[in-house]
Simulated assay, not measured.
Amino acid sequence: MSAPQRLSKPYLVRTGIDEILAELAEGDAVPSERELAVRFAVSRETVRQALHELLVEGRIERRGRGTVVAQPKLVQPLSLRSYTEGAAERGRVPGRMLVTWDDVTASSELAEALAIGDGEAVIHLERVLLADGKRIGLESTYLPRRRFAGLAESFDPSTSLYAAIRAAGVTFGTAVERIETVLPTPREAALLETTTAMPMLSLNRRTVDSAGTPIELVRALFRGDRVAFEATLT
């Protein structure tokens, strides 16, 4: 019989911290690096690595100079529903903070995606997405201005854009969405109150109406430590 495999110190530390977290509630303080290093008889660097993994996974979060057990991730459905609907369904309070709302000139790539002419005016709406007051995402939406010019007078950017579009008589048809992992720029990290070392989920979506006419082009970044996505496959 072969000798049992010896478990590495990083594995034992991570397992030990997992057991500690299992006994704590949301918002409870996590023992400091120094305390954990003494408890597991390892270097603080080994503890720091384990805590960083838990931070990226969204199990813990920084609060002031300490670390606490984080709120569970917001799980958003991948669908043509608004962010407001998805967050509210999960018992969270959705919100938005306006960053940019202006007109830009369509590049050839943007014009092709929105089926408009090169150089046409496009509405650019950039907002920070909130859940229970916490910043979870940064969403940039591009809309053809000649179709949605009325939003300038009627739309409150702290509310659901999809609800406003539906209220204008537009019926959503289909969307193609691509999701990948990226690192944020310094500006994006600052807006989401995180660091450039924290992985983000990048969503790129092009949506068309029931007649196949493009409605929007969206690029959104979500904090991977605070949001997860799910899809129902049939």
Rank of each mutant, 00 (worst) to 15 (best):
A115W: 14
D102A: 09
G27R: 02
S2V: 08
S202R: 15
E120H: 11
L201E: 07
T185D: 07
G150P: 00
E57Y: 07
D103Y: 12
S32K: 01
E89L: 12
E180F: 08
G224F: 01
S108H: 07
R226A: 14
G137W: 01
S158H: 07
G137Y: 01
L203P: 03
A87Y: 01
V93C: 08
V99R: 15
V170W: 11
E180I: 06
V182R: 15
E188R: 13
R90C: 09
K9R: 13
D118W: 13
L130D: 02
G224Y: 03
R63K: 15
P186N: 09
G86C: 10
A131K: 07
S140A: 09
A211C: 05
A25I: 02
S108M: 07
L203D: 03
S79G: 05
A149D: 14
I20Q: 08
V182I: 13
L183D: 10
A22I: 03
A149H: 13
T171N: 09
L161C: 07
I20C: 03
E153Y: 02
S8A: 13
L192R: 06
V56C: 02
R178C: 07
V38Q: 15
V128K: 05
A121F: 01
K134I: 10
S82V: 08
V182Q: 08
G86P: 00
Y11G: 03
D225L: 06
R206Q: 12
L217R: 08
S2D: 11
D225V: 08
L78T: 04
T181Q: 10
A115Q: 12
Y11V: 05
V170L: 00
E177A: 14
D103L: 15
S154N: 08
R6I: 05
L221R: 00
E57A: 14
V93L: 12
D28E: 13
R59Q: 15
V42L: 06
E180Y: 04
A220Q: 05
T105I: 04
P94N: 04
T195Y: 06
E193F: 09
Y162W: 05
L114Y: 00
A29R: 15
G212Q: 12
I165G: 00
Y162K: 12
G173A: 06
E177Y: 01
V69F: 07
V176F: 13
T46I: 06
E193P: 01
A211H: 11
L129R: 12
R62E: 15
V182W: 01
L183G: 02
Q5G: 09
S154Y: 02
P144N: 05
T185R: 13
V56H: 03
S43M: 07
E230L: 08
V176K: 14
R90F: 09
F40H: 03
R96F: 10
L203F: 14
I20G: 00
A115C: 07
E89G: 10
Y162E: 02
R6K: 13
M1K: 14
T141H: 01
S79W: 04
L78D: 02
R178D: 04
A41R: 12
R96T: 07
G119R: 09
D225W: 00
I123S: 06
T141Y: 00
T171G: 06
I20E: 01
L110T: 05
R62I: 10
D18G: 13
A29G: 05
E180K: 13
P94C: 05
G16R: 01
I123A: 11
G137P: 00
V182H: 10
R63H: 14
